[in-house]
């Protein structure tokens, strides 16, 4: 990461204040709405609809409990976890070899593949849910966890490829070559030398794939009925569910994502930095 112009000279006190002020305001802009959602979720249902509302939650778990025992929620949660887990596994298993191949070899067709991957960026991917719905009915994958995971993998795979590509590119080929000269075959060299080095990055991109699936609404809502994921469940109960159910559900959706993003934060920039080029 670059440090920008080291502005040592001529920085006035006013500029300093404006700088710190903007940073704080922008932090509040991000944090306060999340706080409000969680404050709602941690209030009793009666408090959620009470007016005027208190800014501080009463730390009542009734809303969350009501949500968790609400008909269908447990099942939706379980589906969400399953789909996200499958997506994570598939996108890494399929994406990482491609990333490795792109980083280590020069071959005909390499560019075509890169274009294919970059093309996914220029298409509204959730729309894939429409043709997939038809495809899945034909092959019997309609309304299944696995079918939805396939669609989510399409969303997450380009990231997995680009992230692993940048991870592998960051490791000098000499390390691998050294391992070859010391008696490893290609596979051994990979698992003994390269894999330990990229493991944290791979984990990060796996988590990222998980979050992509965990958060996806449109395809999930279109493709599943019995196996609805949590976002699909929430979307379809927007019209009927009471407020405290919506907010508790929103919080349950947000909190794991918050934690996951915290763990992958170091890699966010590597991911997008390379996605740039």
């Amino acid at each position: 990461m670059s440090t920008a112009p080291n502005m040592v000279v001529g920085q006035s006190r006013v500029a300093r204040w404006a700088f710190n002020g903007s940073v704080i305001v922008l932090c509040l802009w991000v944090l306060v709405p999340i706080y409000l959602l969680i404050a709602n979720a941690l209030s009793a249902p009666s408090e959620v609809t009470q007016f005027p509302k208190k800014m501080v939650p009463s730390f009542d778990t009734e809303s969350v409990e009501f949500f968790l025992y609400f008909n269908g929620v447990g099942k939706a949660l379980w589906s969400s976890v399953q789909v996200a887990f499958l997506t994570m596994v598939m996108s890494i298993l399929i994406g990482a070899p491609a990333g490795y191949s792109l980083s280590r070899f020069d071959f005909r067709g390499k560019n075509a593949f890169r274009i294919l991957v970059l093309m996914t960026r220029a298409f509204p991917l959730p729309l894939l849910a429409l043709p997939m719905a038809i495809m899945f009915i034909r092959v019997g994958l309609d309304d299944t966890v696995f079918g939805l995971a396939l669609v989510h993998t399409t969303l997450a795979l380009p990231f997995a490829v680009l992230i692993t590509f940048s991870l592998f590119s960051g490791i000098p080929i000499e390390l691998e070559e050294a391992a070859w000269t010391l008696g490893c075959n290609r596979l051994q060299a990979f698992f003994k030398v390269i894999f330990p080095l990229v493991l944290p990055g791979i984990t990060a991109s796996a988590i990222f794939a998980f979050v992509v699936s965990w958060n996806e609404v449109f395809a999930a809502a279109v493709l599943t009925i019995e196996h609805r994921t949590l976002p699909a469940f929430l979307l379809q109960s927007l019209d009927v569910a009471p407020l405290h159910l919506k907010f508790a559900g929103g919080a349950v959706l947000v909190v794991p994502a918050l934690i996951f993003i915290f763990f992958v934060r170091k890699y966010l920039f590597a991911m997008w930095g390379i996605a740039n080029r």
């Binding site: 922008l26 709405p33 959602l37 958060n215 976002p231 947000v254 993003i261």
Partner: peptide, 18 residues
């Protein structure tokens, strides 16, 4: 500042609904 990156659009809608 990158927290919202991990938040689904539905959850974001619910946040602003609150």
């Amino acid at each position: 500042w990158t927290i919202p990156l991990g938040i689904s659009d539905l959850a974001a809608g619910l946040i602003w609904l609150a």
